[in-house]
Design a protein around this nucleic acid. Structure first.
Lengths: 301, 301
DNA sequence: AGGTTGTGATAGATACTGCCTATGATCGCA
DNA sequence: TGCGATCATAGGCAGTATCTATCACAACCT
């Protein structure tokens, strides 16, 4: 039973005439005649009564025609829905983002994404790197924005932009007067995020600290961390996109001597069928952040 | 897009594995692989993402799968409905019956029909011969029970039983004492039905009357006619099946000298696809009325 | 590391099937 | 009784669904 067969039946039921129904279906009269007869044989039920002057529906046809129409309608729906999904730059795109990036990156790129890719519904999902990768593999996400290298063969990606780190100091801190802060100088009283945040490891590595303070004070979000620094509990290293929020909290920011930073990447499954959409999204984000690294480094007081 | 294709998609979506889905569909893995890919090409949408360890649905698949399931369900419904309709002795059978027969024949045959053909819903429709034939040709009836010969090539039929006519007299009528009444003796004061009833013409023809009285007294139903006879307005000729009703009305019935009668027939369109059901219905009715003509002739006082 | 296992994709052969044109059979109508 | 209309049938052709056999790839497990 094919969509075609059902269309033939509907045409014949509507026209009551093999020739005209065939014309409406764009096939020859014998074709429609044979196919309808074949379907009747398949169903084991006579759907039409042929006479010399036309065609009449049987009672069985009357009982089945509703289902036939419904089936055809559903298949039409499949087709039209598919057409609307055909645009590779349309549809839902579930995008994971790490927590140290999401609150600062999303406001920047949301409007450009909507403008450049109006058909794409970007659905953000905020979680830590490991969780995002798990969800990505589980097909629960289409892509993720991370700040770590990914070395696994089934996940590929592209760099979006370089994000420098900045030294974040309480205003009264002993280093607050310097124009540039050496990473290692932050080590004694550096505060870091809780386990699982990639920024925690990156910060510790950059300043060579052990995160001694982190044992007692584990910030679960960058916002918390900023408030802790602002309150004078210690220093930290923040990604440049959070600069605005840090300054709002009353924190002093200084460029780092070694210009330490991280590379933000868009990653996705290597076999994802949505390459086009992913490329487009990557390009929009990268375009929006172009030149950001330099501006951020220069902009830090 | 065939039912088969959609089944493949559902199997693949449910099993998440080409091999097992193919097995479930009773085809080889390459077949399912190729066909799913072909359908994806037809729709222009990737439905599945193939990996080394299995298959994952794409977002597009998630959006379409509901319609796919609905379409398959509708086609299943067509199939199962067709199976239940397949029994030629099942379904609705719209049966026309002439008014001079219906009230007396239906009570006799309804129970036997239900017993012999439990799947058949016989739907009676009472009307005069010409109207029944019109509806029969218009496919608004499947068959009709008539008391006239039909000479048209597109309508065929079979005799069900012979129905004798009986002389119906008021008890005080001059002929009421005779054992047998000659048809012609009824002519002077014969009452007949309104135009359109076949019994009217048959009665007039049998007794050779002109229906003079009928000009002023036109009974529109046999019940009315019986009451008129019982009230002494005249005589008439009634079909034997109405004997009971006539006697209940206080009418005297006598056999006719020439044993005039009519043949009751079941007729249907020559090309009707329900030959089996019609044959069965005819057989049940004929069987129920077997020997009726003799019993009726003998039973009349 | 390197074979083993399991996955889906591909190739080539075969049989089926849907389609066309041409023609036939039947019926109604003038 | 021929004519027009209707649906059915026949034969040939092309497209396609299917099979088996095999490949390519990745994961896994010694």
């Amino acid at each position: 039973m094919t969509l075609r067969d059902l269309r033939y039946v509907l045409a014949l039921a509507d026209h009551g005439h093999f020739g005209r129904a065939a014309e409406a279906c764009g096939v020859s009269q014998p074709t429609l005649s044979v196919q309808v007869r074949r379907l009747e044989a398949e169903l084991g039920v006579a759907l039409f009564e042929r006479t010399a002057k036309g065609v009449a529906q049987t009672d069985a046809c009357g009982r089945l025609i509703g289902h036939v129409r419904a089936a055809v309608a559903e298949m039409e729906a499949i087709r039209s829905e598919a057409v609307s999904l055909r645009d590779p730059l349309a549809g839902r795109l579930r995008l994971g983002i790490i927590p140290t990036l999401a609150p600062y990156l999303l406001p920047l790129v949301f409007a450009p994404l909507r403008a450049a890719l109006p058909g794409l519904e970007v659905e953000p999902w905020e979680d830590q790197t490991a969780s995002l990768l798990r969800r990505l593999r589980a097909h629960e996400l289409d892509a993720a924005v991370l700040a770590t290298e990914i070395a696994e063969p089934d996940v590929v990606g592209r760099a979006l932009f370089a994000e420098p780190f900045l030294a974040a100091l309480p205003p009264e801190h002993r280093l607050a007067g310097q124009a540039v802060v050496a990473e290692a100088d932050l080590a004694p009283d550096v505060l870091v995020l809780a386990d699982g945040h990639c920024l925690r490891d990156q910060a510790l590595e950059a300043c060579g600290g052990t995160g001694a303070l982190a044992g007692t004070l584990r910030a679960t979000s960058l916002a918390t961390l900023l408030n802790m620094v602002a309150a004078g509990y210690g220093t930290t290293l923040i990604p440049a996109l959070a600069a605005g929020a840090a300054q709002d909290a009353g924190i002093v920011l200084k460029p780092l001597a070694a210009r330490t930073g991280r590379t933000v990447r868009l990653v996705w499954r290597a076999r994802s069928p949505r390459q086009a959409a992913l490329a487009a999204v990557g390009e929009v984000i990268a375009g929006r952040l172009r030149g950001f690294a330099e501006a951020a480094a220069a902009g830090a007081i």
